[in-house]
Design a protein around this nucleic acid. Structure first.
Length: 435
RNA sequence: CGGGGCGUAGCUCAGCCUGGUAGAGCGCUGGUCUCGGAGUCCAGAGGUCGCAGGUUCGAAUCCUGUCGCCCCGACCA
């Protein structure tokens, strides 16, 4: 993308509604604009990040054996009356009526709908297990939306639902999802820690929330440093397909101490050898809740003995749009965002410090042609300082600085946003480092 | 849902108390000298002061209502 023609409206000053770093930076760098309280429009730069996160989530869900579907945002109230949650969910649920006066709602979550889909079509234990997920917009009419996309009313969530024949099988699904989550967050450059959690209105008795560490997080967290050592991605890590790996993984996740301040246990904490404390943001939550919905909604499959069985369910959420904010909270400095390579909107910015200078222009065009859609080319006729400042603000992992000084000698400067480190290289060397 | 605050130019804000012809900085447009960390100077465009009603000769300013947004607390991916 050429910055001169892109729709990336940046702001020099902080809009007064933005109090926390990620919200400020998302507005300033032109990622989103608010359209009403807790509801945002995603602009090109923000949407690219959202899509990148979505894709990592999708790859890891698929890798764990989950299948992607897409359920609607608008649901009939009827399903929720069946489960009994139509009344229970309260004012957070946005209720609407269609032209015939039928009660509808904008889905805050999809247990009922997925259970309905399941019961219509799955008739035998032989078809189990199933894990279905979708990545879809949700609406929860929060009393007080805040923190930009971290706590919006409309938000993009990945929610997965598992169906198993019995509890042992359900536990395996639960562990698979937990592993997928740890891999997902690691791929985004985040340190995530699973913590035992209350189950809230969703119900059930096995539940973990995933907290990522960020200095400006909402809650204080305490955890064993052992979590920092675990690699979920490399060779010798865990496999979704081996029950013994899943068991070993689950043991790792649940034996080391980790708690938010609400559940903090001083006595247990005292026995932790390598203590770590910090602030955290919840970015995911998984639940096992057994037959809560399959019973209330009458979903059964024929078991091995031919008798009907209510499948055991779990649900697994990741706040996709929240992650955009959460990553920024975890990774920024005074100058702006510092994107992890895996989700950056562009791998690199090409800064042409002297537009109109034949050598600079030619060098930049050459780099831009090589990088294509991976690069944001700052071809505006603007001062160098403005370009540096905006590139830092937008947080591209790499900046290729092309100025008249180096260009004459066939050199460009490659800057790493995260470290500030710069080196002078030939364009070819710079391109190969960016990879 | 309780408590507090704010709506004036695209953004950040002043003016309001004490009513009298709408302001600044940034951004934007044209020009100028500049040209490696948000440059200089000159000229310019841009606002029915959130909306509605009231008081008044006269309302951004005072009064009433209403809508929107933000912050603190309780609740949440």
């Amino acid at each position: 993308m050429r910055l001169s023609s892109g729709f990336i409206p940046t702001l020099k000053e902080t809009p007064n509604e933005a109090q926390i770093a990620s919200h400020r930076l998302m507005l300033r760098a032109g990622l989103v604009r608010q359209t009403s309280a807790g509801i945002y429009a995603w602009l090109p730069l923000g949407l690219r990040v959202l899509r990148n996160i979505e894709n990592i989530v999708r790859e890891e869900q698929n890798g764990a054996g989950a299948q992607e579907i897409l359920m609607p945002t608008i649901q009939p109230a009827e399903l929720w009356r069946e489960s009994g949650r139509y009344e229970d969910y309260g004012k957070e649920m946005l209720r609407i009526a269609d032209r015939h006066g039928r009660d509808m709602l904008y889905g805050p979550t999809n247990e009922e709908m997925v259970t309905d889909l399941f019961r219509q079509s799955v008739k035998s234990y032989k078809e189990l297990p199933q894990i279905l997920y979708h990545i879809q917009w949700k609406f929860r009419d929060e009393v007080r939306p805040r923190f930009g996309v971290m706590r919006g009313r409309e938000f993009l969530m990945k929610d997965a639902y598992s169906f198993d024949l019995d509890q042992d099988a359900a536990v395996i699904s639960y562990r698979k999802m937990m592993l997928a989550y740890m891999r997902t967050f690691q791929r985004m450059g985040l340190k995530a820690i699973p913590m035992e959690a209350g189950t809230g209105p969703i119900g059930g008795d096995l539940s973990h929330e995933f907290i990522i560490l960020a200095p400006t997080g909402e809650s204080q967290v305490y955890f064993d440093a052992a979590f920092e050592e675990i690699d979920y991605l490399g060779a010798g890590s865990f496999s979704h397909d081996k029950p013994e790996d899943l068991a070993r993984f689950f043991t790792e996740m649940t034996t080391h101490y980790a708690a938010t301040d609400e559940k903090h246990d001083i006595a247990r904490w005292d026995r932790v050898e390598n203590k770590r404390e910090g602030r955290g943001i919840e970015v995911g939550h998984i639940f096992y809740f057994g037959t809560k919905y399959t019973k209330s909604m009458g979903a059964t499959v024929a078991g091995p003995d031919g008798k009907p069985v209510h499948p055991e369910m779990g649900s697994y959420g990741i706040g996709v749009s929240r992650l955009v904010g959460a990553v920024i909270e975890a990774s920024h400095d005074d100058n702006g965002i510092i994107w992890p390579d895996s989700i950056a909107p562009f791998k690199a910015a090409i800064l042409n410090l002297k537009v109109g200078d034949a050598t600079c222009d030619a060098l930049c065009e050459q780099l831009y042609a090589a990088l294509g859609d991976n690069a944001l080319y700052d071809d505006r006729n603007d001062r160098a300082g403005a370009k540096f400042a905006e590139a830092d603000l937008m947080g591209h992992p790499w900046q290729i600085v092309v100025g008249p000084r180096g260009a004459a000698a066939g050199k460009v400067e490659l800057k790493r946003r995260a470290t500030g480190e710069r080196v002078e290289l030939t364009p070819e060397e710079a391109l190969s480092r960016i990879g």
